[in-house]
């Protein structure tokens, strides 16, 4: 069921994720990074119980680990030397930097997992169609072809298997050759048919006038409210960051994690930004629990 944050207008969701992804790329302050990581994991949990995240987290961890290891190996900046590897100094600062970078990459990847849950292909196309109608149309048609072609590929491969062309234990080269035969059959079958579809589209009046795009969802009061809140807290965090608030300096020595009064303000607005979708989702869930318990 779509509720809470995911039920907002796609444009508002898009604005949120555009801001969130840029924060993932911009913030390197340990405190803010930690908050971001917790928030994006929480967002995934509140969206689908973390199912999508669990499928992909393994690959993400490998990437993050790679980033974590690469930095201290190639950078000897920093004042606190921990030990030497092949006559190269490994410093505390470069290890911390690598760790911060790898957390920031994790945040980015996990935020994308949440984005894929909220902005499904339909919503993304809805966003694209007013800006680039022809491209959105081409992408829609292509998307419609993918399941069709997948079914056809399976049918063709079944035939090939029945005729004994695909056998167990055939070599890579022979397999690749045979799989290409599958594609040939698919191409000659489908290209011809696509052109017939086109003729049929034209006979129904494709291309006569301007393409109109229907948007069944309009921005309602709640969407505007969230939009304004996002602009205030998100804009504040973004501008603050670009002006140098919470710009964490690792070199030459780790900067102590002190907060200036303005830093607190910045932190508060960023935390509000992160918490917004979580609050919306949990509010709906509690509301539903309440209704159910009164039934």
């Amino acid at each position: 069921m779509v509720y809470g944050f995911a039920s907002l207008h796609p444009r508002v969701c898009f604005l949120y994720f555009a801001l969130l992804l840029s924060f993932c790329m911009l913030f390197l302050h340990p405190l803010l990074l930690g908050a971001t990581l917790a928030a994006v994991i929480g967002l995934n949990l509140s969206l689908d119980g973390g199912r999508a995240l669990r499928r992909s987290i393994g690959g993400y961890m490998i990437l993050a680990l790679f980033i974590f290891i690469v930095n201290p190996l190639f950078s000897s900046r920093g004042a606190t030397i921990l030990f030497y590897v092949w006559d190269r100094a490994v410093t505390l600062e470069s290890v911390v930097y690598g760790a911060l970078f790898s957390v920031s990459m994790l945040c980015l990847l996990i935020a994308f997992t949440a984005l894929n849950l909220v902005l499904n292909p339909g919503k993304l196309l809805l966003l694209l169609s007013p800006i680039a109608p022809q491209t959105a149309f081409a992408v829609t048609v292509t998307m419609r072809f993918v399941p069709l072609l997948t079914r056809r590929l399976k049918a063709i491969m079944t035939v090939q298997r029945a005729m004994g062309y695909f056998t167990d234990g055939m070599g890579r080269r022979r397999y690749a050759r045979e799989a290409m035969e599958t594609l040939h059959a698919l191409v000659s079958w489908s290209l011809e048919e696509a052109l017939q579809t086109a003729a049929s589209m034209r006979s129904r009046g494709y291309g006569i006038g301007r393409r109109s795009s229907a948007d069944e969802q309009t921005m309602d009061g709640r969407d505007w409210l969230v939009c304004w809140v996002l602009l205030v807290v998100g804009g504040n965090s973004l501008i603050g960051r670009l002006m140098g608030v919470h710009a964490y300096e690792v070199y030459p020595r780790l900067e102590p994690l002190g907060e200036s009064p303005l830093g607190w303000l910045h932190l508060a607005s960023y935390l509000a930004f992160l918490a917004l979708p979580l609050i919306m989702n949990e509010k709906e869930r509690l509301h539903w629990r309440h209704i159910r318990s009164n039934m």
């Binding site: 022809q134 149309f137 081409a138 048609v141 292509t142 998307m143 072809f145 993918v146 072609l149 594609l183 698919l186 191409v187 489908s190 290209l191 696509a194 052109l195 579809t197 086109a198 003729a199 589209m201 034209r202 494709y206 291309g207």
Partner: peptide
């Protein structure tokens, strides 16, 4: 674009 051209691009992309 003619309908054929658009469909061809879409079909090639899908393939």
């Amino acid at each position: 674009l003619r309908a054929e051209e658009l469909l061809l691009i879409a079909m090639l992309g899908a393939i």
